[in-house]
Amino acid sequence: MANIASARKRARQAVKNRAHNMALRSRFRTSMKSVLKAIRAGDQEGASTAYRNAVPVIDSTVGKGLIHRNKAARHKSRLNARIREMGQA
């Protein structure tokens, strides 16, 4: 355990920040899974709606520094490609 006051405060902040980051990361993963679930079900309309709801969540995760912007772009691109692919099949 830290002895210096500033180190104790830092430890308290780290616990709080970790809980916050875990909640945001969970929200990000849930939004991704909702799109994938609709794609697997073959529901293009539902997948498009889920994708539109997921994009702001993905972008806000980038803004908060949880994931890199290239990772977000990759996820959005792949999800969108799979949704477009459903329309052609």
Rank of each mutant, 00 (worst) to 15 (best):
M1P: 15
M1A: 13
A2D: 11
N3I: 12
A5W: 06
A5L: 14
A5Y: 10
A5C: 00
S6R: 14
S6T: 15
R8I: 15
K9M: 11
K9V: 12
R10G: 02
V15I: 12
R18H: 14
R18I: 02
A19H: 11
H20G: 08
N21S: 05
A23K: 09
A23Q: 10
L24Q: 04
L24V: 07
S26V: 04
R27G: 01
F28Y: 09
M32E: 00
K33V: 00
S34L: 03
V35C: 01
V35I: 08
K37M: 04
K37R: 09
A38C: 03
R40V: 07
R40Y: 08
R40K: 10
A41Q: 11
G42P: 04
E45S: 11
G46A: 08
G46Q: 08
A47W: 07
A47R: 09
S48M: 12
T49D: 06
T49R: 13
R52C: 00
A54S: 09
A54L: 03
A54H: 03
V55H: 03
I58T: 05
I58A: 03
D59N: 13
D59L: 08
G65F: 11
G65D: 13
I67K: 05
H68M: 04
H68I: 01
R69C: 00
R69K: 15
R69Y: 10
N70W: 09
K71G: 07
A72Q: 08
A72Y: 09
A73V: 10
A73C: 07
R74G: 07
K76G: 04
K76T: 05
S77G: 14
L79W: 06
N80F: 05
A81R: 14
R82E: 12
E85C: 01
M86T: 09
G87S: 15
A89I: 10
